[in-house]
Design a protein around this nucleic acid. Structure first.
Lengths: 207, 207
DNA sequence: GCAATTGTTGACCAGATGGTCAAGATACGA
DNA sequence: TCGTATCTTGACCATCTGGTCAACAATTGC
């Protein structure tokens, strides 16, 4: 340590390996939950030794936190786009459709969240109580105004969001059950889901 | 072993302790998932020694299976009551309401299932593929007939069931998230959920 | 009352798992 | 090229956890 003890800059190898570990950890955590995942599995899936994984992330929980944080943004972004000046039903359907697409394209992220919340949200509780809550409250005001202006059926805005979240995430989180009950291909499945959800939402929300 | 080696009958103590263990195991498994639960926790929660728990259930997995099996029936019963001769929307709403009530009154059972399915449904897959699938298929036919007779909006029956399941179970499975986003009392919460869900379903399904 | 069966548990074992460490391999700046 | 900082890993350790067992307690049928 000749010139400084400022935080040393991130090596290319560092960035590369941390990304590899996080990608592998997403697979393992989303499939097995926090307790069910082992550092050895993550290392194997990332193609390196357990000791090396723990060289980049000191503790197992640090890996878990990193994986969660990396996907938190994806949660907020689509909701943030809800446009108060657009057509209410169109805006809400656009949001629901985005969530449904997300369930199809990123099922691992959805299952990671589901696992975390089922275990009581020990890590992301602050996120839920702050960032998410603030965003949700502001968006609920928009929805409430739509209702007050007679542009939307008089639903509870918060529970409307719950309905959108649950019915879309269901396709990622409960896929084993869904696959046991249908022979549709994945594309057909999501096409039918989209059609039915659109019908329920657009008709149900009409003022 | 003097007279027989037929299966000896269940003692009163046996039945009593097995029930106590299953009740405790429901708490522990639903809160921590299969891997996250320990036999010691279950024993502690049941007020007996780990060795004694394993005297009644030879393996940890046997406890888990017993807990699951005991609650499988609850899954089928309400759906089975769907009456083809009743008013379609009324029948479907009655079913949804029953599921919502179940989420409020038996959240542990709901979370137990969610955990099991998130882990790939290793134990209850046969149940999903047989009992549940048969019942669902027969009920989907009823719904399809309602649609064919113009008594219901043209939704996909299977996906309609998915929506009912997801939006009601959500209140049990994601309660940490829900509690982070609202200050409502539990009763208010479920009253609002009921109102919003009823509005969306009854309006959305009108032909 | 008294065997025989059933119930109960502390002590113990084996394997899994998170985490450490020292020692060697590799990359990188001067 | 050389020296330093970074990277990598096998070996190891402590703890946790599912499961066993022998010994003792309680119950029950006769």
């Amino acid at each position: 340590m000749t010139h400084s003890d400022v935080p040393r800059k991130r090596t290319r190898i560092q960035a590369q390996n941390e990304a590899r570990i996080i990608r592998a950890a997403m697979d393992v955590f989303s499939a097995n939950g926090y307790r069910g995942a082992t550092v050895d599995q993550i290392a194997g899936s990332a193609g390196m030794s357990k000791a090396n994984v723990l060289y980049y992330f000191n503790k197992k929980q640090d890996i878990y936190t990193a994986v969660l944080e990396q996907t938190l943004g994806i949660w907020l972004d689509p909701l943030d786009e809800l446009n108060p000046d657009g057509d209410p039903i169109e805006e809400l359907w656009k949001y629901a459709l985005q969530k449904l697409r997300f369930s199809q394209q990123e099922p691992l992220a959805s299952r990671l969240f589901a696992n975390e919340i089922l275990q009581g949200a020990p890590i992301i509780r602050p996120f839920l109580e702050n960032e998410l809550k603030n965003l949700v409250m502001s968006k609920c005001q928009i929805i409430q105004q739509w209702i007050d202006h007679g542009k939307l059926a008089p639903v509870s805005p918060l529970h409307l969001l719950f309905f959108i979240w649950s019915s879309t995430q269901h396709y990622a989180d409960f896929s084993p059950q869904i696959n046991a009950l249908t022979q549709e291909s994945e594309d057909e499945l999501f096409a039918d889901a989209e059609k039915t959800l659109k019908l329920l939402l657009t008709r149900g929300l009409k003022p």
